[in-house]
Write a protein that binds this DNA or RNA. Sequence first.
DNA 1: TGACAGGGGGTGT
DNA 2: ACACCCCCTGTC
Length: 286
Amino acid sequence: MDWTPWGELSPTFRLDARVLRELLDGGQAFRWYETDGVWTGVWDSWLVRLRLNAAHCLEWSGPNDVGQSTACALKDYLALGEDWELAVDNMPWRSDPVLARLMEQWRGLRILRQPLEETLLTFLCSSTKQIPQIKQICTDLAQVFGSPLHEGVNRLPNWEQLYAATEDDLRACRLGYRARYIKGTAQHLAQHPGWLDDLEQLPYPEARAKLMALPGVGGKIADCVLLFGARRLEAFPVDTWILKAMSRQYALSGWSHEQIAHFGRVHFGAGAGLAQQYIFAGERSR
DNA sequence: TGACAGGGGGTGT
DNA sequence: ACACCCCCTGTC
């Protein structure tokens, strides 16, 4: 594989290695792997390498044959154009010392802008799975059903390709009972072309309910898809980590997932999903 | 070393 | 509340 020379991505986006790991491999995306400080990742039709330089800025390198276009795609993926300082400042850190401390500890953490259909797929694979297992499933799915990208690297299959797969072939990718959900969702999407198109325009409750109509998508996965795949920062996914963290830090023991999700959206407001990412990072590193 | 519980970042009934 | 399916882990 021929790679472009390393180039600096943005002089203003600084973060340390610990935050970079959390950003790329902390449960938002599942196709990033690190070797000797170099992260290699795939999303959509993009393949890229990332590393941190001495000034804590990101450097990138992509396949030579697509030239500089990788940098544009990467800036969008990492949401460099978004005003994160404003989003972060709008969170209620002034009255919430728990949040204020986490924001200090995970400076630079943000929400990736991932393709919607891919995000739906990866989070459909995620239930009762840990990150390494989800990554393995994604690798399998790409290898078996996805289209080739660059020498031995495939992109994730689209829903048409998944629809063409048999449930048994899906099961062979370690999906277990999730294979049925993926097959069902693929069927639904095949029967309703453009079904996901209005998702980003829909008010949050409607968008969430719409996703939950898909087999295998409950409240948590719907929120992950909206937050990571549809740029809906008000979505507040509640998994067992968030449940544990919120119960302890906000004295909400005994509250249900849905109750905590509602609390999160009310307490943290428009940037609830971003707050969730900080709480998640903090809980995971305990 | 091999077998065998136990359990997991969730959803559906 | 419990099954669902697979994989990983810890234990004997």
